[in-house]
């Protein structure tokens, strides 16, 4: 087998692997499917048949069919539902924080002064941000608690979301400073995007973290039931 054939096989297998990962096929199953496919394509290549001749251009479609027929487990990340629920769940917290901040609701906040104490300002915003996070986490828990590994997901979110917020806030403020705290719509959109991307990334990471042992958990279940 020559280098060109080997390169084609590598490309084909990589393309299939990307599709399997996109479908959230378990890592162990991706490895097994990939190894089997590589062996078979290599056997064909030694008989002079290229991978592209066998599979054509729709490698992703082939990978999907193969995953379906192999009956592989898919990790139930449910990112879309999780992100949407977290966003919707944050809204009551945002509304409450807004009302508290602008005096629609009386709270234990000091009256505004000409020279506000920076520590008090940071503490106030931190408490309000935590209220928003709490509102989001509670909603996620109550709406999605039937999904697998949700206790671990919520715990991981409780750790990672505030952390992401703490990292994204100074970055966003630094960006705002570079544009002289402009209120122009594109600037505000970028600022919201920075914070939103950090928080969404934290939620995705939390879910992945919670489901990192999903394969072994699923395999252990029959043994536990037995």
């Amino acid at each position: 087998m020559n280098e060109s054939q080997q390169w084609t096989i590598d490309q084909t297998v990589r393309s299939a692997e990307r599709e399997w990962r996109r479908l959230h096929v378990r890592r162990a199953d991706v490895a097994r499917l990939s190894r089997d496919l590589r062996d078979d394509l290599t056997s064909a290549a030694t008989e002079g048949v290229a991978a592209t001749e066998l599979l054509g251009t729709d490698v992703r479609g082939f990978a999907r069919r193969l995953a379906d027929e192999a009956g592989v487990e898919r990790v139930p990340y449910e990112f879309d539902r999780l992100l949407l629920t977290a966003l919707v769940g944050a809204l009551p917290g945002v509304a409450f924080a807004y009302a508290l901040l602008y005096g629609y609701i009386s709270g234990p906040t000091a009256p505004p002064s000409d020279e506000p104490d920076i520590g008090a300002v940071v503490a106030t915003y931190a408490v309000l941000a935590l209220l928003v996070v709490l509102s989001s986490l509670l909603t996620v828990w109550f709406r999605l608690r039937h999904l697998p590994a949700m206790p671990r997901t919520v715990l991981a979110m409780a750790l990672l979301v505030p952390l992401a917020g703490a990292i994204a806030t100074p970055i966003t403020m630094a960006f705002a400073a570079t544009v002289n705290y402009s209120n122009a719509l594109p600037v505000l959109a970028i600022e919201c995007g920075l914070v939103g991307a950090a928080l969404a990334g934290a939620i995705v990471l939390a879910r992945r973290w919670a489901l990192r042992d999903w394969g072994s958990l699923v395999e252990a279940q029959p043994a536990i039931q037995a």
């Binding site: 089997d36 496919l37 599979l55 054509g56 193969l66 027929e69 009956g71």
Partner: peptide, 15 residues
């Protein structure tokens, strides 16, 4: 239907 049909079916038969 070629390899794209046969190989997934073979995988199912193995399963």
């Amino acid at each position: 239907g070629g390899y794209g049909t046969v190989y997934p079916l073979l995988t199912r038969m193995r399963r």
